[in-house]
Structure formats: structure tokens, C-alpha cells
């Protein structure tokens, strides 16, 4: 950690997304810089907006998730479907118009290749079972905690244990 070079070399080669961030939507190439207070407040405000929407639309509710998996209302499908449509149009516009970030950096969202797809199928199924049981995925876990469902902190720790266990067993799992 003494220099920028050693920081870079400690990134393991198997973290394919680390050019951007370890997430699923492709990598975004941005100039690396430390987290400024201005940037942090942007992330915080966006998080607050997202948290408010999650609660006010009731998508954090186990009851709504049950309703969805029983095909008994349009609500969840409407939320997820219209979110995808708006996200898709926005992202395509950003790409076509070559929009930049407010810091002037280019926005490049690379696609994540399917490969053999085993991790997406198996990981997806496992995640789905967890989602169906708990009725909440990671975003709603944070929102429910804020909303005062204090026992969700146990689910949060369990989810951390799950993520940690994945890290531990990654090399034995088919991908």
C-alpha cells in the first residue's frame, strides 16, 4: 500500500471486473481518484432516493414478493419492468450520444460475457431461493434496516457470511 503500483498489484487476477468494480453490469472505465466529500454526498443522496423508492413502492415487502411469485398482481412486474425499460433507454442514449460524467470522464459500459454460464444459472437459482425465502434482496435488506425492521440485521450478517463463503469456495465451484 506504499505506492500506487503496489495497490494495483494486489488486485488478484481473477477479479475480472476490477478495472471498474466487482459488479455485474459491465465495467465502467473512470479515472481513479480518491473519494471526495462531493462525490460521497452524491452517492449518499442517490442511495437515499433509492431507499425511499424501495420502501414507498413496497417492493421490500415479503408480502409483495410472495404476490409476485404467485402471479397474483402486476405491481412487482410493473416496477421491475418499467425500471428496466427506463434503464435500457437511458443507457442506450448515454452510449449513442457518447455522454460523459460530470467530471468529463468517458462512460464505457462493457458487456459481461456469458461464457459457459454455469455461475449465472447456479448462482441465480441459489440467489432466487434466498430471495423467495427472505422476501428481500441486498438493496431491500439495507432499506428494511433503515425502516426499523431490526431483525433484518441478522439476514445482513447471514448474507455477508454467504458472500464470504462464496469467496472461500470460489475455486471449487463451476463457473
Amino acid at each position: 500500500m506504499s505506492s500506487a503500483t503496489s495497490e494495483l498489484t494486489q488486485v488478484p487476477p481473477d477479479c475480472e471486473e476490477i478495472g471498474g468494480t466487482p459488479y455485474s453490469g459491465g465495467s465502467v472505465k473512470v479515472e481513479l481518484r480518491t473519494l471526495s466529500a462531493a462525490d460521497a454526498s452524491i452517492y449518499l443522496v442517490l442511495g437515499i432516493l433509492f431507499g425511499v423508492v424501495l420502501i414507498k413502492s413496497e417492493v421490500v415487502s415479503w408480502f409483495r414478493i410472495q404476490e409476485m411469485f404467485r402471479f397474483q398482481a402486476f405491481h412487482m412486474y410493473g416496477v421491475i419492468g418499467s425500471a428496466v425499460v427506463v434503464g435500457m433507454i437511458s443507457l442506450q442514449l448515454i452510449k449513442r450520444l457518447g455522454l460523459r460524467t460530470i467530471h468529463g470522464e468517458t462512460i464505457e459500459v462493457a458487456s459481461k460475457p456469458l461464457g459457459r454460464g454455469v455461475s449465472y444459472v447456479a448462482g441465480g437459482l441459489i440467489f432466487g431461493i434466498g430471495w423467495g425465502l427472505l422476501g428481500a434482496c441486498p438493496g431491500p435488506i439495507y432499506a428494511l434496516f433503515g425502516a426499523g425492521v431490526s431483525v433484518i440485521v441478522v439476514s445482513f450478517v447471514a448474507a455477508l457470511a454467504g458472500a464470504w463463503t462464496y469467496g472461500l469456495t470460489k475455486r471449487f465451484l463451476p463457473h
Binding site: E17, P22, Y23, S24, G25, K112, S119, Y120, A122, G123, G124, L125, I126, F127, G128, I129, G130, W131, G132, L133, L134, G135, A136, C137, P138, G139, I141, V154, S155, F156, V157, A158, A159, L160, A161, G162, A163, T165, Y166, G167, L173
Partner: peptide, 15 residues
Amino acid sequence: GGFLAGFGARYAGGC
């Protein structure tokens, strides 16, 4: 449920 959601999300590379 929480454990599987955390494990599965990281295995699948996203939630």
C-alpha cells in the same frame, strides 16, 4: 434466506 441471497448474488456476480 439471507445466506443464500448473499452467496448466490456473489456466485452469479450480481443481484
